[in-house]
């Protein structure tokens, strides 16, 4: 359920950034593993949240970073999507750091209609 709050925060941010008349085609977000976000759940929340906005129908692409782990037996540092993954030496791993970042990295915009028209007219 926290996906709805996150989606609203993303929309607020997007609306602050995009120019008047601009329409959002896609967004790129990155989250740390500790943020506990499911890409599918966030995408669903996004589709509901962005209705009637300049981002309606846009695709939200979320990348979730893996957990940063350290083997308790041999000390090897590695990454995994599952924090319980054992080291190749068989040792149990512990977390090195819990990354809970949530970053909007990029907005893919369709230019405002006015700009489109001027380009077409220029060609003529």
């Amino acid at each position: 359920m926290h996906e709805i709050s996150i989606a609203r925060a993303v929309l607020r941010m997007v609306e602050d950034i995009i120019p008047t008349g601009g329409h959002v085609k896609a967004l790129r977000l990155r989250a740390g593993a500790a943020r506990a976000l499911e890409p599918e759940a966030l995408e669903f929340a996004w589709q509901v949240t962005c209705l009637d906005s300049a981002a309606a129908g846009s695709k939200l692409n979320l990348t979730v970073d893996p957990w940063a782990l350290r083997c308790r037996k041999c000390g090897r540092q590695f990454q995994s999507d599952d924090w319980q993954t054992s080291c190749i030496c068989g040792g149990a791993a512990e977390l090195r750091a819990a990354d809970d970042e949530l970053i909007l990295e990029e907005i893919d915009l369709v230019s405002p209609p006015g700009q489109h028209r001027s380009v077409v007219q220029g060609r003529e």
């Binding site: 925060a9 993303v10 941010m13 950034i17 970042e101 970053i103 909007l104 990029e106 893919d108 369709v110």
Partner: peptide, 14 residues
């Protein structure tokens, strides 16, 4: 047109 942002989504809450 791709606009790079790189900003904390929960900035307002934080």
């Amino acid at each position: 047109m791709k606009v790079p942002v790189v900003d904390n989504v929960l900035k307002l809450n934080d």
